[in-house]
Design a protein around this nucleic acid. Structure first.
Lengths: 181, 181
DNA sequence: GAAAAATATATCAGAGCAATATATGTATGG
DNA sequence: CCATACATATATTGCTCTGATATATTTTTC
């Protein structure tokens, strides 16, 4: 599932510029399970345009660079729905936070506390954003389902951190307690 | 946090070959939040060797290619603990499964069911592997904490899928029900 | 007894990210 | 009241990393 297919997916929800596609992955409905950078989106849109999978209409803007608004063609919609039937690649998670935390014994306890507190705050902010999302009301069933799963998982993560925070900090502060016994 | 630091992290838990480092990310203690391929691990180990951060000892093996066993040097341990103090990059999740499922309205209901069932099975298998992990008993506090978080999150994900599976399939099968009302 | 999977290292093409460049508008704050 | 930061908008480039492939042998599975 490359960036071209991801772009087709965003465009299947309505026309958008490259900048807006980026935002869909940064703050929008895909933010908690996918992302794409400008360095991959703009080339992808050019390629899709050349292949006739998207149409491009330039919107002249006063006092701003021209906006290139892309929309799916019939052929593009076809390619997208076919791509959806393929076997999904395995999920990939990359968390420097968890990697660092798994070596908590090498960190000052105060640092461990700060890391966890920052992360709890981040989860709580994300949850707020995801929960009172206006657009969610009229979303298709799949999007609603996936959003609900994001909320369930983030909530479990935040609760775990809140519940086990103090025990980890205590363990790190007194590393001998267990061994000495 | 590049692959070189990841390798130092694995080696801080004990000496290992490139092949064994790969396994640590595939099935081992890091599998649920990080990964690295051979194409990045082997060059990283060469670079670390050249920089004097790891030592390499070749173990001749009967009937197998020679195993190159790497271990941390004092300098390597130093670089690693310093790297741990840096601000972690934001987490990155990449799930084709959720992306595809967010467009469930374009899929046959049977396909949606199959996707979800496969995923539930995968979560349950992973949970089993993570829960009865022998090595976990004598792991450092950070590793135990992170493992517990993985279990909590996977469990929440599996439960969400089990709870909401049928409702999604019903919604996809009867797409007009809501609009017609 | 054949096929598949595991052990083990290594390389390379291509994909994609982070940083940077360019140009301008709006908000923040001292 | 001006400077700094942030938002809109597209584009490119260097560098990192993945996925596929190559090579060679053993062990397991069917």
């Amino acid at each position: 599932m490359d960036v071209k297919i991801l772009c087709l997916g965003v465009l299947s929800r309505g026309e958008a510029s490259g900048y807006e596609i980026k935002k869909a992955f940064e703050e929008g409905p895909f933010s908690h399970f996918h992302q794409a950078s400008f360095g991959s989106i703009y080339p992808a849109l050019n390629a899709l345009s050349a292949e006739g999978l998207v149409a491009c209409r330039a919107q002249a803007q006063e006092k701003r660079p021209d906006k290139k608004i892309y929309s799916l063609t019939a052929k593009g919609r076809d390619v997208f729905t076919t791509a959806l039937l393929a076997e999904p690649d395995h999920d990939r998670m990359r968390s420097d936070f968890l990697f660092i935390l798994s070596f908590a014994q090498f960190l000052p306890p105060a640092r461990v506390a700060a890391l966890i507190d920052q992360r709890i705050a981040w989860y709580r902010e994300s949850l707020e954003r995801m929960e009172d999302c206006e657009a969610a009301r009229c979303s298709p069933p799949g999007a609603t389902f996936v959003r609900g799963m994001g909320i369930a998982v983030y909530r479990a993560a935040a609760e775990y951190l809140e519940t086990n925070r103090d025990a980890l900090i205590a363990d790190v502060a007194e590393p001998e307690a267990l061994v000495a016994e």
